[in-house]
Simulated assay, not measured.
Amino acid sequence: MPGPKDLDPSSSPRAMLGAELRHARERNGLSQEALGTRVFVSGTFIGQLEAGTRRLRPDMARLVDEALGTDGFFERNCEAANRSRYPEHFAEVAEAEAHATAIRQYAPLLIPGLLQTQAYARAVNRAYDPTASEETIEEWVAGRMARARLLTNPTTPLLWMVLDEAALRRETGGPAVMAEALRHVAGLARRHRVIVQVLPFRAGAHTAMEGSLKLMDFTDAPSLVYFEGVRVGRLEDDPAIVGQLKLTFELLVASALSPQKSLALVEGMAQDYDHAEHL
């Protein structure tokens, strides 16, 4: 029986690699849990690899090849499957977003990447690296805009964003950029493409004061949560942690303004930035 063919990097390599992993596992008569035991990960993680929501890294790929007798196929194809335009700590998250059926996010300091305009994204990336070349900045902006293409689907994924008032009041790129950015957020909310709630300053202390969080649900894989810091990030699939953070998000929703009041606040702030631009 012929073995699997090497992946074409121009296609969807991670999805293809996941499909090949599932086929090879089933040919060997192994469950996800059984394969996970052989390569020292959970069966849940194997399921996420097969669904294309997690990365198969070279060290694990070697173990998979040994366990399944695939003659180095998975190790050879790791590079193509993991090729990404995003920073190392975020590449896996960007791939997971593309497969998610629901994304729930709390953003304490800036408008989330999926909701950003080009001008806002440019200002954010320039602030991240003041010495980067214009070409590099434009490449980063293009990557951020590419992620937002999932919004072209009118219903999937469900997007539910809780934006801290601080994210809306931090003037990023100047008044004109902020006015455009907030009008964009309001437009998405008015088209019912995104549920937007603002967590106002007057809400006081809340359950997520220590940082941002992003929860992602999938049809054929367990939920994930992503934590992000300065140039670092961590993707977590532990069910206990994910469950705890889902409760955290629900508490944030309970403390935030209603979607209607949030929309009014966002549009009012956009008008304020417009006025500031003309002073």
Rank of each mutant, 00 (worst) to 15 (best):
P222F: 06
M216R: 00
E210G: 13
T219C: 07
R202Y: 06
S212A: 13
A203P: 04
L224C: 04
Y226S: 06
D220V: 05
E210F: 11
L224V: 05
S223A: 14
F201K: 03
A221T: 15
D220T: 12
E228Y: 06
P200M: 04
E228P: 05
A208P: 01
D217G: 07
S212M: 13
S212E: 10
K214A: 13
L224R: 01
H206F: 11
P200G: 04
E210I: 13
F218Y: 11
D220A: 10
T219E: 14
M209Q: 10
Y226R: 00
A221C: 12
P222A: 08
K214W: 04
F201R: 07
G211S: 10
L215P: 03
S212V: 03
P222C: 04
F227A: 14
F227Y: 12
F218T: 12
L213C: 03
A221I: 12
A203V: 08
G204D: 09
E210D: 14
R202A: 15
S212L: 07
G229P: 02
K214T: 15
A205C: 02
E228Q: 14
R202T: 15
L224G: 03
M209A: 14
A203F: 07
G229Y: 02
T219F: 06
M216E: 05
H206I: 11
A203G: 10
D220G: 06
L213Y: 04
D217V: 04
L215M: 07
R202P: 01
F218H: 13
K214Y: 03
A221V: 12
D220Y: 08
R202S: 15
G211W: 09
L213I: 13
A205I: 06
A203K: 00
G211Q: 10
K214N: 13
M216G: 05
Y226E: 00
L215N: 00
F218S: 12
M209P: 01
G229R: 03
L215A: 00
A203W: 01
P200D: 02
P200E: 03
T219R: 15
A208V: 02
G229I: 03
F227C: 05
M209F: 09
D217M: 07
P222Q: 07
P222N: 06
A208R: 01
T207R: 00
G211E: 09
K214C: 15
G229D: 12
A203C: 10
L224W: 02
F201S: 08
V225N: 02
A208E: 02
F227G: 06
F218L: 11
A205F: 04
S223C: 05
P222S: 09
P222L: 07
E210C: 07
M209C: 02
M209W: 01
